[in-house]
Design a protein around this nucleic acid. Structure first.
Lengths: 159, 159
DNA sequence: AACAAATGGTTGCCCATGCAACCGACAACA
DNA sequence: TGTTGTCGGTTGCATGGGCAACCATTTGTT
């Protein structure tokens, strides 16, 4: 009887450990240099690109849990990197935007992101990269179609 | 001024959300059907393939933290899926192996794994799959070379 | 043989993260 | 206009997972 499928050949496993390695490396970098967590970094990245947004918008664009977004925003506000201004159109939500300091940090953060992306994916041909992207997209689509429930957080109970 | 790089185009981000989606989906499945967590599942997969191993061996083969391995083994033992027998060669460690029940479950688990892998990666050509695997391997290598420290757990402080 | 260093395993603690429940505000409808 | 349902945001609680510290045993050194 053949060994069914060694764990090391199992694609979801490979995907998981690779992703963890990459995320871990990047998380480490941002923590050391800016004291930012990944969720905080993601929120900053989106705010820097899009200007003022509500938390709801942010959850959509980052695919994070709304709680994660909320906490990230709270930290950014406390650190003076972002501000919440009341939303005239909807009394429940605020508009979040980067402060001067926030924009300054955003200016440092994004080049570093690009640099790290370049370092991690060094030695890949452009067509390989786009192929990789494409594969990831298709996998995500597949998974999305498999579960009928909404996939807003991108993560299910691991408990 | 161009938006630097929309988060959605950032490769580590795409990798992360895709991996989370896949892992989450699989975790959900195994939890519902067998009450197994991912670490427990991984340990069972390896044990089923390799026969009796020490926890040290398991940490190497699963690339998980030794604590994670320990806890997974504990649970498997308590559920009667695995046994620990003293190691004559080394009084510190035990040999872990699947019980009859464990083997039975292993027999159910692995086909399901293969099936899910097939479902998630449906519509891919074989050469695309091997390409994908290859890309993941290379990325992991790259990251491994970037940090000089050992990467045993595959994950760094996210705190 | 004795001591020091390293190693496998275990426990405790802490933090990040997710879900469920909740609150205040808006929207739909009678 | 009052009532009901929905939605954005917030808080509390539980869980998973990682790291550091620790014990027991083994290995290396003299």
């Amino acid at each position: 009887m053949q060994p069914t499928t060694p764990l090391s050949k199992f694609l979801p496993y490979q995907l998981s450990i690779t992703s963890n390695a990459v995320s871990g490396r990047i998380a480490q970098e941002y923590r050391q240099r800016f004291g930012l967590s990944v969720p905080e970094w993601r929120v900053m990245a989106v705010l820097g690109d899009s200007g003022a947004l509500t938390q709801r918008d942010l959850t959509q664009r980052t695919l994070m849990d709304k709680v994660a977004v909320n906490r990230a925003c709270k930290v950014l506000e406390e650190r003076g990197l972002a501000t919440r201004t009341p939303n005239a159109q909807d009394g429940r939500s605020h508009h979040l935007d980067l402060t001067q300091d926030g924009r300054k940090m955003h200016g440092l953060i994004m080049p570093l992101a690009v640099e790290m992306e370049g370092r991690v994916f060094a030695g890949f041909q452009p067509d390989e990269l786009s192929q990789f992207r494409h594969l990831l997209d298709r996998v995500r689509e597949q998974v999305g179609e498999l579960d009928s429930d909404g996939v807003d957080s991108g993560n299910f109970s691991e408990s």
